[in-house]
Each structure stands twice: as structure tokens, then as C-alpha cells.
Nucleic acid binder design. Structure first.
Lengths: 220, 220
DNA sequence: GCTCTTTTGATTGTATACAATGATACAATG
DNA sequence: CATTGTATCATTGTATACAATCAAAAGAGC
């Protein structure tokens, strides 16, 4: 590293800097599924010693982004169809809970934030900026999850989404009509605004499922 | 360490042995919430160097059993009322999903396993063996979760339960009538056997909630 | 006696050195 | 030619050494 991309990173232990850096590279496809993570090579590339690299890898391991093979070191996690299904089901379960809780706790400021976030998402869609699309879509969903007010559920959802982010990213690349997602978001906002939690739950389920089906099809 | 409690541990990297050992000590209360984990002391006590201790701590950190304070090291995680609520809500959400899926996928062998597990639980209850009670209760719930067939959900539930295990353990100590839990299990088994998933979901929700309420009350 | 500095010690964070192990290449043997 | 044994090498696993930092104690100034 030698220099810091973000000011805030300057105060983090190197293991966390390594963790964030490698996570980024895995999520956005620079490090590909199955690729081996060799400690010496990484420590040289990142300009730190092996110790923080190893500790960073331990964190990635628990996050589910790398798998360890004994004496063979760390590999970027790849995902089987079954694992993907399991993650998606878990995500749907928790995000369904979240949108329901969101309906109960929504207020004016939060509601505005949802609309703003979807506008930003619409903007990135019109620009066809994939990375920004992925990020701003995440941002929209995060407002719902934040409003639900359950930190643990949020933490679990972040972790689950990371594990499929790579595939979602690829999926968006090939999507015919991404504006459909914007309209789906709008419907969800509407249901939340009307406090129709059953409707919102059903919409978010469909919204998530349709993406999942596409990712799933692509994986096979 | 110097010797191995379990044969299987002999082939694990020391970081995993440290991880398992410390997790055990945290779960069963030998290491208490808030207690500081000092690397040198641990490495001397466990008979290994600081490196595997540090890596084991990284794993515990992600598991949510320890929290890191910058430059102050690792502490056994304590839990606030809010955090407990969040964990419980997440658990209820996922375990509700699991029991529902379990109803759809149950077969004869699994059904028998449930009954056997509850018999074992009843036995430990009659013996007033707290540790065995906690373990065999977990075992009963695990059969339901395993039958649901979603590995990710299982993994998440294991992690969530670990975070409240200490408190559940304390709670069982002071429980007036633990045989009630056995009867609740029986009802759940019955509902699963009759494929009445709505009933089973409702029962498990109440079963979990009643424990949670007691734990929650105790925490305050 | 109180407060602010300074020092010192303890502890974490980081780097490096050493050991153990598994993979690979090559040679010996049938 | 195939197969097995062996040597070598790359890489992970583990231990230790060094640096940075924080906290508490000691001391100086008022």
C-alpha cells in the first residue's frame, strides 16, 4: 500500500485495510472465484508483511469470501448452485422481515430518503454505469434495512449480499431493461408509504426473486 | 495445550484449536463478558505462540463472541438489551423459516430422530444436568434446522445462538419447571408430524419467545 | 495539595525468521 | 514405458523479535 486511498484507513490496523482491499477486489471481480491467495505475493503487492495479510484472510474466511484448504492456503470462494439457493433463501427471509419492520417504523424523513435513493438509482441506470448501479441499488435496500432498526439483521444481510454481489454485478451487465428495477422500487415505496406491509413484503419478495432467478440461470 | 483433548484436533491448525477452546470457554462462562483477552497470557496458558492466538481471536471476532478495541485488544463480547433483542428477532425469523421448510421436507427417519432427541432432552432435564440440557436442547432444534436443508441458514443460526448461549445457560439454571420445554417440543413434533406448518411455526415462535422473554428479563 | 508533564512499563501491531509439509520434477527400477 | 522413490522447492504454519502506542505512575511546578 504505502499510501492510503481513504483518509479513514490511516487509523485502521493493517489487517482491516488488507481485509477491505481484498474484499473489494473479490466483490468487483479483480480476484476471481477459485483464485489462490498467496501470502507472500499479497504482502508484496500490498506493501505489508505476512502477518496482517494472514489476519485479513481470517476475516475474509469468516465473511465467506474465501475458503481455506489445509496447507494449501486461501482461495477466493466460488459458489455452487445449491449454496447460491441457500444464500438467496436466507436473504429473502431476512429482507422480508426487514421490509415488514420498515413499514411499522417508517417516518417522513426515511420515506423521503427512499425516494431520493431511488432517484439516484434511476440516474445511474440511465447512465448505464454498472458499478454505480450496483452501489446505488444496494443503497436503496439499505435504507429499508436501516429503517427496520435491527443491527444484527443488517449485519447478516450485508454478509449474505456480499456473497452474491459478484454474480449480481455480472447479471446487471446483461440485463435487457434495468429500468424495470426502478419501477419495482417505486411500487415498493408506494406500498410502504401506504403502510400496506403485506403488499410491500410481497413486492420485495418478487423483486428479489426475479433477480435471483436470473442470477441462478446464469450460473448454470 | 501441549496435549490434545480430541484426536481430531490434532490435525487442525493451532488457530482453529485456539478458536474452539476459547469459544468453549466463552460459551460456558469460564471467560466472562467484558473480560480482556491478553495475547501473551493466552499463548502461555494454551502453550502456543501469539500468532495462532491472534488468528483465533480474529475468528472469534467475526463470530461475534469478542469485540476489538483499537490498541486495547480483544474483550469477551457483552451484550446490551438492544443487541439481545436484535439477535433474538433474527433468530426467530430464521428459525421460523426453518421449521416451515422442515414441515415440507420431513421424512420418517427425521421424524424418529426428533422424537429420540426429545427423549434425550427429557432425560437430561430429569437429571437436572444443566450443561447436558443446554446441549440436548440445541440438538433437538438442530434436527429441525438440518431437515430444512439450508446450510446457510443453519450457519447463521449457529452463530446467532452462540451469542445468546451464555444467557440461555444462566436462564436454565433458574428455571422453575424445565419439563415445560419437553412438552413444548412434543407439541412441535406433533404439528410437524401432521404437516401443519402454520401450527408448527406458531408453536416454535412461542417456544422461542418464552425463553427469550425470560432471558431478557434476567438481563435487566 | 492539585494539576500538568514526563517517564516507564505493559500490550498491541507489525515484521521477520524458522519449521513442517505438500507438490513437483526427476531419476532409478521393474 | 510406467511406476515408484527421492530430492528439491514453494508455501503454509508457527514462533519470536522489534516498533508503536496507550495507560498508569512518578515527578515537577504552582
Amino acid at each position: 500500500m504505502g499510501f492510503y486511498e481513504n483518509e479513514e484507513d490511516a487509523f485502521l490496523p493493517l489487517r482491516d485495510v488488507v481485509f477491505k482491499q481484498l474484499r473489494e477486489e473479490i466483490l468487483y471481480g479483480k480476484l476471481k472465484p477459485g483464485e489462490r491467495l498467496m501470502e507472500i505475493a499479497l504482502s508484496e503487492r500490498l506493501g505489508v508483511s505476512r502477518t496482517p495479510v494472514r489476519e485479513g484472510i481470517r476475516l475474509l474466511e469468516k465473511e465467506g469470501l474465501v475458503v481455506m484448504l489445509p496447507r494449501r492456503g486461501a482461495h477466493v470462494a466460488s459458489i455452487t448452485a445449491k449454496q447460491l439457493e441457500d444464500v438467496l433463501e436466507a436473504r429473502r427471509t431476512l429482507e422480508t422481515f426487514a421490509v415488514n419492520a420498515c413499514c411499522a417504523k417508517i417516518n417522513e424523513a426515511r420515506f423521503e430518503a427512499l425516494k431520493t435513493a431511488n432517484s439516484r438509482f434511476a440516474e445511474t441506470v440511465s447512465k448505464r454505469d454498472l458499478r454505480a448501479m450496483a452501489d446505488s441499488d444496494t443503497e436503496f435496500h439499505n435504507i429499508i434495512i436501516d429503517t427496520a432498526g435491527n443491527e444484527k439483521v443488517k449485519e447478516l444481510l450485508v454478509s449474505l449480499k456480499e456473497q452474491i454481489f459478484r454474480y449480481k454485478y455480472e447479471f446487471m451487465k446483461e440485463m435487457d431493461d434495468p429500468t424495470r428495477l426502478v419501477r419495482e422500487h417505486e411500487e415498493i415505496i408506494k406500498a410502504i408509504g401506504e403502510s400496506r406491509s403485506d403488499k410491500a413484503v410481497e413486492l420485495i419478495r418478487m423483486h428479489i426473486d426475479s433477480q435471483h432467478i436470473a442470477i441462478y440461470r446464469k450460473l448454470k
